[in-house]
Design a protein around this nucleic acid. Sequence first.
DNA 1: AATATGTTTAACAATTTTGTTGATGCAAAT
DNA 2: ATTTGCATCAACAAAATTGTTAAACATATT
Lengths: 209, 209
Amino acid sequence: MFVYFITMTEEKKDTEQTIKEAAKKIFLVNGLKGARMQAIADEAGINRAMLHYYFRTKDKLFEVIFSDAMTEMNQRMGAIITSDLPILKKIEHFVHGYSESAISNPEFDLFIINEFRQNPTYFDEMMKTSNAGTVIKGFASEIEKAIDKKEIVGNPNQIFLSIIALCIFPFAAKTMVRTMLGHSEKQYTKLLEERKDFLMQFIIKAITP
Amino acid sequence: MFVYFITMTEEKKDTEQTIKEAAKKIFLVNGLKGARMQAIADEAGINRAMLHYYFRTKDKLFEVIFSDAMTEMNQRMGAIITSDLPILKKIEHFVHGYSESAISNPEFDLFIINEFRQNPTYFDEMMKTSNAGTVIKGFASEIEKAIDKKEIVGNPNQIFLSIIALCIFPFAAKTMVRTMLGHSEKQYTKLLEERKDFLMQFIIKAITP
DNA sequence: AATATGTTTAACAATTTTGTTGATGCAAAT
DNA sequence: ATTTGCATCAACAAAATTGTTAAACATATT
């Protein structure tokens, strides 16, 4: 009996979790309007009515997935905070940290970029209040300070933009780049792994005086 | 009478053109499934039936816009071909050429990235046959040669990926970056303009021995 | 065994979106 | 002035998509 209880609870959670994972997969690729509830149900291997039973509406389900994604974004950006390291070490910490989490969830980057465009006001608000917002602005101003101290050279905004471009683009445009290079999934994953180290050398060369 | 004839013809073409421009705007932001015919009609300021009158179905209308986008992509990538310049000049030519065309059509980049993901096989095919495909592979192999000749240093694929990341990302993730930097549309446009020159210095420093 | 509780499903209803058609207008040709 | 041919629109029909419900099912509690 006790065993049954555990089993049942686990299976219940499993359904909800299964739906969330399926929904994440579909929403991340198709966006809110582009996604179909049936596609999510198929992905989860369950009846479509279950989606409504657990999450009421498409919008509410999306909201859950979206919040999770935001939390993840805050965590990723949090990788920058490492208090009192010199700027190059800080950049290195960010590059490695970002790459690590992007490798484990490579669909995420493009989703965020798309959502930003579709819902700019939401993110405007978020930048003012959230962890990510503070971190990003802090990072940008640290770059500025380092330039003042002649530790690195260039325009602060351009440098900031370049660093995140080099980090994010390989994941956001994964399929495109992979196709351009004629790489298999495996080859490209290897490229991304190796990139962590390549990038630091590349960036350091580019910004040190 | 002659004047009337001209006027009428122009207005007819205008409607079709108006629809195409509106459709481009909507499809580029929302994708095929995410776009709504009513949204396109509203954007064009005409009755929705007109879309069907001129283009039959949503799919066919999308196909037209998509083909145009592919043509543009081929043209952009063609900016690389400048026959016998040294590698750094060739890169410079690409960076400037790409930035120029991206500034005039900034929604395009993210659209292509998204379509690549949604329809990988289509692009796989395209890379084998099209202008863009040849150009991209040629560019990648030129970088490889230059590395052999010790003109530049690094891994060829990483360098190729880095160059296109630095060029494309600022447009693809425009809204995101703009929000992160707290820039207005105007400020960000200025940043993109200035970036043409910044980028070349950045890239040269990063890849010369 | 009977009951209660939450889960699942198929069928249905409502809504949204796409696609069609017949009536109307408008300029050019006769 | 009448006719012709295309463009436009409002209203309608069809299809796709989302949301609801009542009944069946499973499992734990009594």
